[in-house]
């Protein structure tokens, strides 16, 4: 198949155009965080650093950031354990119901977030009679984060050499020693990549959080949503938006690099 030059130019232009559209709104948010106008007027009448100073002087905001980080750390830790165990089980054994287990892992992200959120809300409140709290939010986040760890570890395990584990056993190492000295170093960077992805997924989540966190639990996305419609708050929300993008993109950049090194 030959791709004509005009087709190449068309495809290239389309790609460039879409990339521009992908980045334009994000740049607007960045610029608006310095926009003197409080109402997102374009072009900006002038620039100021006030909003940045204001945002980081706000106690509620910093508390929300802390809550988000705490929930993300707890839920990605749980997801790391569950996802790794599942990946080990599904990569090494054939068993009845294997497909069902595989489906169970992807279901929390394949179904809309509102379904996951509502199902857990209903289970916690109506069925178990629990009060919603930070713990219920962590349980919910961990549930949909399992899949990122699972996918990363499974992909890595499919490329590792199982003979090494058998050799380790032949040389007298027990299961735990083999896991620590042979398996873990091989899947280590996949764990880090999966954990970082899980962290970012949890950090940005809003729909499931709205349904499963107690009323006093304010994560950063919930803070953004609560303040978005308040008059005069738009510029501070811009600052927070830029900050969240930076916080979630930096770990992801490293996760990607780890994943890439792995595939080489």
């Amino acid at each position: 198949m030959r791709i004509s030059n005009s087709a190449k130019i068309f495809l290239g232009t389309a790609t460039g155009g879409v990339l521009a559209i992908i980045y334009l709104p994000l740049f607007i948010v960045l610029i608006n965080s310095f926009n003197k106008s409080m109402n997102m007027y374009w072009p900006p009448p002038g620039f100021t650093f006030d909003w940045w100073a204001k945002a980081f002087g706000s106690g509620g905001l910093l508390a929300a950031l802390g809550t988000s980080v705490l929930i993300a750390i707890c839920s990605s830790s749980i997801a790391l354990v569950l996802g790794t165990l599942l990946a080990l089980a599904l990569s090494r054994y054939k068993f009845f119901g294997k497909q069902a287990v595989g489906l169970m892992v992807i279901l929390p992200i394949a179904l809309p977030g509102i379904v996951t959120g509502l199902a857990l809300n209903n289970a916690f409140r109506t069925v178990l009679g629990l009060q919603l709290s930070m713990a219920t939010a962590i349980i919910a986040h961990a549930t949909f984060c399992v899949v990122t760890v699972y996918n990363n570890v499974l992909a890595r395990l499919s490329r590792t050499n199982r003979n090494l584990e058998d050799a380790s056993a032949d040389l007298g190492a027990g299961l735990f020693t083999t896991f620590r000295l042979v398996t873990l170093p091989q899947i280590g960077s996949a764990l880090i990549a999966g954990g970082l992805l899980a962290f970012a997924l949890s950090f940005d989540e809003i729909i499931v959080t709205t349904f499963t966190a107690g009323s006093g639990v304010e994560t950063l996305p919930i803070w953004i949503l609560n303040n978005m419609f308040r008059p005069g708050k738009a510029p501070v929300v811009d600052v927070v938006a830029v900050t969240t993008v930076l916080i979630s993109i930096v770990p992801l950049y490293f996760a990607q690099r780890l994943a890439k090194e792995d595939s080489k």
Binding site: P25, I28, V29, I206, I249
Partner: peptide, 14 residues
């Protein structure tokens, strides 16, 4: 991976 909420909010300005 930029927050879903931030993207929706970005379009609110746009």
């Amino acid at each position: 991976w930029a927050s879903y909420l931030v993207k929706a909010y970005a379009w609110r300005s746009v």
